[in-house]
Design a protein around this nucleic acid. Structure first.
Lengths: 128, 128
DNA sequence: ACTTAGTTACGAATAACATCGTATCTTGTG
DNA sequence: CACAAGATACGATGTTATTCGTAACTAAGT
């Protein structure tokens, strides 16, 4: 099956770099590598290479003004999260987002989480 | 990074076969191939190969009593869905299932879906 | 200008995935 | 028994993902 050229799902390694970018904002390879090194063991050139690939895929943009290029996420965290959820809903929940939500709620047994979700529902209902 | 030997996440192709198995129950390669062929173009031996790999990974069990082996999912659909959600929560929502749920709810604006979810919350609260 | 530290670019090794062709094995039927 | 149909097993190929070493380039200080 051919990969879609547009709307590309980030791989696992790519997503971990995007998480850094969303957290600390536009950054150089060095900054990203430093941040990622706090939790993982990854070589500097590995991070660089992944960013270059992400640039090819248009998952990030980069500012080449200075010698050390500055990378930024091409899409927002919210947008990407929604895409990933939509993808998972398609592949594991027969396309039903609500089935996905119910399963996820069933898993989160924490009382506080349930209350958080209920409040979100109330807010949504008011808007509608 | 080394793959975990136990608790393996099914790949995309594997998941599509699991979906068939959950739907139509324990089946031979032929039956699975027929079912999958309704929506995809996949060779018979491709399906066979994937099932063999899944068997190696213990994602399916198989009954070799008869010439045509009968494959069954090793884990339930619910269990697998929960695993995938947990995985996505870790990788894209900082480990927070409730953040995942909120994002998913935010995407599904349907009034009926919101009501369904609220009822599920009520039921959960009663149990707790 | 030369050296050095820091950077990007490039290519290669490895593993996982997905796909399929061919070979081999089994079993029912003529 | 022999054969044909249908099954599994095996190996090969091509692609993607992940990783990193090495080379080449750039800029800044001495």
């Amino acid at each position: 099956m051919a990969r879609e050229r547009s709307r590309l799902k980030p791989t696992e390694a790519e997503l971990s770099l995007l998480n850094v970018l969303w957290k600390i904002g536009p950054s150089t390879v060095r900054q990203i590598h430093d941040a990622v090194s706090e939790t993982q063991h990854t070589g500097y050139t590995t991070v660089l290479k992944i960013l270059q690939i992400m640039h090819d895929k248009s998952l990030v943009t980069r500012d080449e003004t200075n010698r050390a290029h500055v990378y930024s996420p091409a899409n927002s965290e919210v947008f990407t999260q929604s895409s990933l959820l939509k993808d998972l809903a398609m592949k594991a929940f027969g396309g039903s987002t609500s089935k996905l939500v119910m399963r996820a709620i069933g898993d989160s047994t924490s009382k506080k989480e349930i209350e958080d979700i209920r409040q979100l529902l109330n807010k949504l209902e008011q808007q509608a």
